[in-house]
Amino acid sequence: MRVFPVYAPKLIVKHARIFLTGVIWVKDLGRLEFEKGRFLLPRKSLPKVKQAILELNELIEAQN
């Protein structure tokens, strides 16, 4: 598990694309899981977490 002390979308996306499957922890967002290079949306999450995951997945799609 990698810990990101700040929310840096480009760096987080780079990590997810390299490792494809895993878990990261982002300060103020908490634990985020990714599989096959995409972030998974938890069943229950705060609106800011949901927005961050959608933003990260959009960045991943834009890079493909």
Rank of each mutant, 00 (worst) to 15 (best):
R43L: 12
V13E: 04
Q63M: 13
P42N: 11
V23M: 09
R2T: 14
K44Y: 10
F39N: 00
T21V: 06
Q63C: 06
V26D: 00
L54Q: 07
L41R: 09
K27Q: 14
V6H: 11
I18A: 10
K50S: 08
E58M: 09
L11Y: 05
E35Q: 11
L59N: 04
K27A: 14
Q51K: 15
E61H: 10
F19H: 11
F19K: 11
Q51M: 12
L54S: 09
I53P: 00
K48C: 05
M1T: 15
K27C: 13
L40T: 09
G22H: 02
W25H: 06
N64K: 04
L59F: 07
G30D: 02
L40E: 04
E58N: 10
E61G: 10
N64R: 03
E35T: 12
T21A: 11
L29N: 00
P42W: 04
A52W: 03
K48H: 08
A52V: 09
K48D: 07
E58Y: 09
T21I: 08
P47I: 11
Q51N: 14
I60P: 02
V3Q: 08
E58I: 12
G37T: 05
K14M: 10
P9Q: 04
E33F: 14
V3N: 09
P42C: 05
K27S: 13
G37W: 02
F19P: 01
L40Q: 08
F34M: 06
F4E: 01
L29I: 12
L20S: 09
R38S: 10
D28E: 09
R17G: 13
G22Q: 02
E55R: 07
A52G: 03
L20V: 09
R31A: 04
E35H: 11
I18W: 10
E61Q: 11
A52Y: 05
F39D: 00
K10F: 14
H15D: 03
V23H: 10
K27F: 10
K10A: 14
Q63K: 05
I60Q: 04
K48T: 07
N64T: 09
V23A: 05
H15Y: 06
G22Y: 02
I60M: 14
P9Y: 02
H15L: 04
A8H: 15
L20H: 10
Q63P: 09
P5N: 13
V26A: 03
E55F: 09
E58D: 09
E55W: 06
K50N: 07
K10M: 09
L56Q: 00
S45C: 07
D28N: 15
G37F: 04
K50D: 09
E55T: 07
L40A: 05
V6S: 05
V49M: 12
L40F: 06
D28P: 12
L29Y: 07
L41Q: 11
P47L: 11
I18V: 12
V26T: 03
R38N: 06
Q63Y: 10
R38C: 06
L56H: 00
D28I: 04
P5R: 14
L56T: 00
K50L: 06
V3A: 04
Q63E: 14
G30S: 02
L11D: 12
S45M: 13
A16Y: 02
R43P: 05
D28R: 15
V6F: 13
Q51S: 11
E33H: 14
N64S: 07
A8Y: 09
V3P: 06
F34N: 00
E58T: 12
I18P: 02
N64F: 05
Y7W: 14
I12T: 01
A8C: 11
Q51A: 14
N57G: 02
P9N: 02
A8R: 08
F19R: 06
R31D: 04
I18C: 06
R43D: 08
Q51Y: 09
K10I: 11
K10P: 09
N57T: 03
P42M: 07
N64H: 12
M1L: 07
F19L: 07
V3G: 05
E58F: 11
L56C: 03
Y7T: 02
L11K: 09
K50P: 03
K14G: 12
Q51I: 10
V6A: 05
W25F: 09
D28K: 15
V6E: 06
A8I: 14
K10D: 12
H15P: 01
I53G: 01
F39E: 01
V13S: 09
R2K: 15
V13H: 02
V23L: 08
V23K: 14
V3S: 05
K44G: 09
K50F: 07
L29W: 04
A16I: 13
L32C: 03
H15K: 02
K27G: 15
E35C: 08
L59M: 13
L40I: 12
K14T: 10
E61N: 10
N57C: 02
G22K: 02
K48A: 07
P42S: 07
G30C: 02
R2H: 15
R43A: 08
I12P: 00
R2Y: 15
K27R: 05
E33S: 15
L29V: 12
Y7I: 02
K36A: 13
V49G: 02
N57L: 01
H15T: 04
V13C: 05
T21Y: 07
L56W: 02
R38A: 07
I12W: 00
I12R: 00
L29D: 01
M1K: 13
I18H: 15
K27T: 15
Q51P: 04
L56S: 00
R17N: 12
G30H: 02
A8S: 12
H15R: 03
I12L: 05
L46W: 14
N57M: 02
I18T: 14
G30V: 01
L11V: 08
V49C: 05
I18K: 15
M1I: 15
L29C: 04
A8Q: 09
G22N: 02
E35Y: 10
V13L: 06
V26N: 00
F19E: 15
I53A: 06
L29E: 00
V23P: 02
R17D: 05
I18N: 11
F39V: 02
R38H: 14
K14F: 06
R43I: 08
L56M: 08
E35M: 11
G22W: 01
N57K: 01
L59K: 05
E33I: 11
I24W: 00
E61D: 13
A16M: 06
W25R: 05
K36Q: 12
L20E: 14
K14C: 08
R2A: 15
E58S: 13
N64V: 12
N64W: 04
K50Y: 08
K44D: 07
K27W: 14
D28S: 14
V49L: 13
E33K: 15
E61S: 11
T21F: 08
D28A: 12
A52S: 07
F4T: 01
L41N: 09
V26M: 01
V6C: 08
G30Q: 02
F39S: 01
T21H: 11
W25K: 06
L11G: 06
G37E: 07
A52M: 06
P42Y: 08
L11A: 13
R17A: 14
L32Y: 05
G30M: 03
K50Q: 06
A52C: 05
I53R: 00
E35D: 13
M1G: 15
F34I: 05
E35N: 10
I53Y: 04
L32G: 00
V3L: 03
W25D: 05
M1W: 01
I12S: 01
R31F: 10
Q51R: 14
A52K: 09
R43T: 10
R2G: 08
K48S: 09
R38I: 10
K50H: 10
N57V: 02
W25Q: 06
S45F: 09
G22V: 03
F4M: 03
L54G: 08
V13P: 00
F39Q: 00
Q51G: 11
K10C: 10
G30F: 04
L46S: 12
L29A: 02
L54M: 11
S45R: 10
K44F: 08
F34C: 03
V13M: 06
K48L: 08
P47E: 08
G22R: 02
F34S: 00
E55C: 05
R31I: 12
G22I: 01
E55N: 06
N64A: 12
E33P: 07
M1P: 15
R17V: 13
Y7A: 02
V6T: 06
N57D: 03
H15W: 05
F34K: 00
V26G: 00
L41M: 13
R2I: 15
A52E: 02
L46P: 14
L20D: 14
A62L: 11
V6Y: 13
V6P: 02
L29P: 00
F4N: 01
I60R: 04
H15A: 04
A52L: 06
P47N: 11
T21D: 13
R43S: 10
V49T: 06
R2P: 15
I24S: 01
E33R: 15
P5Y: 15
G37Y: 04
I24F: 05
R17S: 13
E55V: 07
R2L: 15
V23G: 04
V49Q: 07
E33Q: 15
K48M: 10
E33L: 10
P42G: 09
I18D: 15
L29Q: 01
K44V: 07
P9A: 05
F19D: 06
F19G: 04
K44C: 07
V23Q: 14
S45H: 13
G22F: 01
